[in-house]
């Protein structure tokens, strides 16, 4: 575990009486693909926001590649090596798709030609090259999600945080995306932390799964192992029954 690329140690976040994230710990090894799953309101997006510097945790620490990045600003987190996407996509609407990705690529280089080349490569990898010159506001929602990913990738992160980028995709598109991410991770050694409701993608892509429920980690392990865990089944399937039993 000490060789982890990203180490989250007991982070917590409270919003006005609601414990959104409660003492959650997990780790992502170099090149690893870890999925963060759980029902709606489990605290997945808050966890992402804490890691990416969009929110400051009330407690705990976040270590990336040996450096403590807890409580830094989002731009500092990005420069430390965290690339993120937003669940509610945030394209730079008036800029072209290529320019959107170039903004990300400018993190690694101030040279416009180099940034342009890097952006093209990423667009091709994610199948957006044909749309490169279109304004980002003309993209469809699945395309916007891919653009989010492309932009984050362009910052050359050590770890990529994907917040439901498969939502709204057709099954064949999901398989394409899964393949693209798996290739990317294998070829470049990129680590990925993802949240996803599409179980098909989670099972196919991730090496390791962390399950959150009411802000707490209830289980983690290999995909097959997690899928058989009674607690996980209960929180996903037996939600109604579980809620009726006090103390459950």
């Amino acid at each position: 575990m000490s060789a982890a690329l990203l180490e989250v140690r007991g982070i917590s976040k409270r919003f006005r009486g609601l414990q959104a994230v409660d003492n959650v710990s997990f780790a992502v090894p170099p090149g690893g693909i870890v999925a963060l799953i759980g029902p709606n309101g489990a605290g997945k997006t808050t966890t992402f926001n804490l890691i990416a510097g969009a929110m400051v945790p009330d407690g705990g620490s976040i270590v990336l590649d040996g450096a403590d990045i807890t409580g830094g600003r989002p731009d500092q987190a990005c420069r430390a090596g965290i690339g993120r996407t937003f669940q509610l996509v945030k394209p730079f609407g008036a800029l072209s798709v290529l320019q959107n990705v170039m903004v990300g690529a400018f993190k690694a280089t101030a040279d416009r030609v180099a940034a342009r080349r890097a952006a093209w490569e990423i667009l091709e990898r994610l199948g957006l090259a044909e749309k490169a010159e279109n304004p980002a506001k003309t993209l469809t929602l699945p395309e916007r999600k891919r653009l989010e990913t492309a932009r984050a990738l362009a910052t050359r992160p050590k770890i990529l945080l994907l917040d439901e980028v498969m939502a709204g995709l057709r099954p064949t598109e999901i398989d394409q995306m899964v393949r693209a991410f798996a290739d990317l991770s294998r070829e470049t050694g990129l680590a990925i932390l993802l949240t996803e409701h599409v179980m098909r993608a989670v099972m196919a892509l991730s090496h390791h799964i962390v399950v959150l429920h009411h802000g707490q980690k209830i289980c983690e392990g290999a995909p097959e192992q997690v899928a058989r865990d009674p607690q996980v089944l209960e929180c996903y399937l037996g939600h109604a029954q579980a809620a009726e039993r006090p103390g459950a």
């Binding site: 990416a52 969009a54 600003r73 989002p74 731009d75 990005c78 420069r79 993120r84 937003f86 945030k90 394209p91 730079f92 609407g93 008036a94 800029l95 320019q99 170039m102 903004v103 990300g104 400018f106 993190k107 101030a110 416009r112 940034a115 932009r151 984050a152 362009a154 910052t155």
Partner: peptide, 20 residues
């Protein structure tokens, strides 16, 4: 770079921050 960054800020500050 500065022009791209300015436009990114104009379009969406939060996304701009997340890109460093």
């Amino acid at each position: 770079r500065v022009g791209y960054y300015w436009q990114a800020i104009r379009e969406d500050e939060e996304a701009a921050r997340a890109l460093g």
